[in-house]
Nucleic acid binder design. Structure first.
Lengths: 68, 68
DNA sequence: TCCCCTATACTTAGTAA
DNA sequence: ATTACTAAGTATAGGGG
């Protein structure tokens, strides 16, 4: 298969960018949940997609994130 | 070394918990930065450690996170 | 959009400093 | 608190449905 390591720069091809967005968003939310449990801490993540959709994760109701 | 896969539950031993907190926090911030660049989106993460210290990452000044 | 798959890149547990 | 090391666990690119 010989994937080459990816560069951290905007993915130009829209379908690929959308797929990556979906996968990595899930990955971050998972990591956030794990960190909060493992380390007994509170974690919140907010993501605003390019298309204007908002996604968020919070380990606690005490945490709030907003965009201007 | 024979590590066994870790369980996602609070790490009891404080020094180990602190080390994991430090490592995973960095990991999440890195992932957040990558996601924002790769997918041209805005991402913010806020973490409140058990000891009361606040850590945050934001890909944009438009993003704000707070704790009650 | 989401899930499945696999090979590979990446993250991290355990440890010491 | 953080970081370096390295083995092993995990996330994910690319491709298919």
């Amino acid at each position: 298969m010989m994937r080459e390591k990816i560069q951290i720069k905007k993915i130009d091809y829209l379908p690929a960018r959308q797929v990556t967005f979906s996968k990595r968003r899930r990955g971050i939310f998972k990591k956030a949940g794990e960190l909060s449990v493992l380390c007994d801490s509170e974690v919140a993540v907010i993501i605003f997609s390019q298309t204007g959709k908002l996604f968020d994760f919070s380990s606690s109701r005490r945490v709030r994130c907003t965009f201007d």
